[in-house]
């Protein structure tokens, strides 16, 4: 990334649904694949379940972020709505504004895009909108990276990235041995020098793993060696040594996987922020950014510190960034 870039991460805001569902209940509802004991052993506790659709979670979160930072919606030049689940990027039946199309126009329900509705609802009239999908857990990090790149190219004052995902009723909440929560997280980018600096974003996509069920065996074997290499390449690209990283901020996949990756990479577990896994669960693409906000708010990092954010998205994408506080 351009080392003299003036683009900064200006603010982060997230929403976690109030409702918490325990592992036993998830299991009783048939929403786990493994036993609750295994999931507990892997570091999970309750998961957060939203009563409102993803689009609504995104809207509330973006609105709060804009208000908190006193940003005039008309000054936002770009909105990227990054969703993991295809169902999250559409405005579902039952959402206000318009009746859900029926009869000959039923197919138009597939064109009810969240990003454009968010632009309308939040008054982001000057923002170009982008819906980003098919990136799994790296969706929000990819969105921030893209927004950063677009801001470099265009003279934009602000850009917004948001991820909101809500698991549809009835489908499993365990994804490859991880218990998934609903959530939304929004990131505001600006040119205010006080913000956080995205210094490196290294990604690796291995399209062979596009079929997470059919290729799961190989994926499990490749997961840690690939993760290790991505971390090493990120360090190399950043020119930073391990000791210069204050914290590794993971996404909230199983604690066990971080214990193993810590051993594979030699990064001590104490340096990996895993405290949110049990209480918050794995909010798919939002975790890294939720955790980043939490470590800043809790004073675990100070101005000038470097943190590393790592995530892995089914598909399969590995993403690793270094952010300077």
């Amino acid at each position: 990334m351009n080392p003299s870039s003036s683009i900064r991460i200006h603010g982060i805001h997230y929403t976690l649904p109030e409702r918490q569902v325990g592992l036993e209940q998830l299991s009783a509802e048939g929403r786990l694949v493994s036993t609750p004991e295994t999931m507990r052993d892997f570091g999970f506790g309750d998961c957060r379940v939203s009563n409102v659709p993803a689009t609504q979670l995104a809207s509330t979160t973006l609105k709060a972020l804009l208000e908190r930072h006193g940003v005039d919606p008309l000054e936002v030049g770009l909105l990227i709505n990054a969703s993991v689940l295809p169902t999250s990027s559409l405005v579902p039946r039952g959402e206000s504004l318009a009746e859900f199309p029926t009869g000959d126009n039923a197919h138009l329900g597939l064109f009810r895009f969240s990003s454009t509705r968010l632009q309308d609802e939040l008054g982001l009239s000057n923002a170009r909108t982008v819906g980003l999908s098919e990136l799994g857990c790296v969706s929000l990090s990819h969105a921030v990276w893209l927004a950063h790149a677009v801001m470099e190219m265009e003279d934009l004052k602000y850009a917004l990235c948001v991820n909101a995902d809500v698991f549809p009723d009835g489908i499993k909440r365990e994804v490859v041995y991880n218990v998934c929560s609903d959530s939304a997280c929004a990131v505001l980018l600006s040119r205010d020098p006080e913000g956080l600096r995205l210094k490196t974003y290294h990604t690796l996509t291995r399209g062979y793993y596009w079929d997470p069920d059919g290729h799961q065996n190989e994926l499990l074997a490749a997961y840690f060696p690939t993760g290790k290499r991505v971390l090493e390449k990120t360090f190399k690209a950043s020119g930073l040594a391990r000791e210069e990283i204050k914290l590794l901020i993971p996404h909230n996949v199983s604690l066990r996987s971080w214990e193993i990756l810590s051993k594979f990479t030699g990064i001590p577990l104490e340096k990996i922020y895993t405290e949110n896994i049990r209480p918050k669960g794995h909010s798919v693409a939002a975790d890294n950014w939720i955790n980043l906000k939490d470590v800043i708010d809790r004073g675990l990092v100070k101005k000038g510190d470097h943190v590393m954010m790592f995530s892995f998205g089914l598909g399969a994408h590995w993403g690793c960034s270094i952010v300077q506080i």
Binding site: R206, Y208, Y209, E218, A221, A222, F224, P225, T226, K228, R229, I260, K263, F264
Partner: peptide, 12 residues
């Protein structure tokens, strides 16, 4: 796509 396995210590 496939990577050489890592050599790890007994604990890992």
């Amino acid at each position: 796509v496939f990577l050489p396995p890592d050599v790890v210590d007994e604990d890992t």
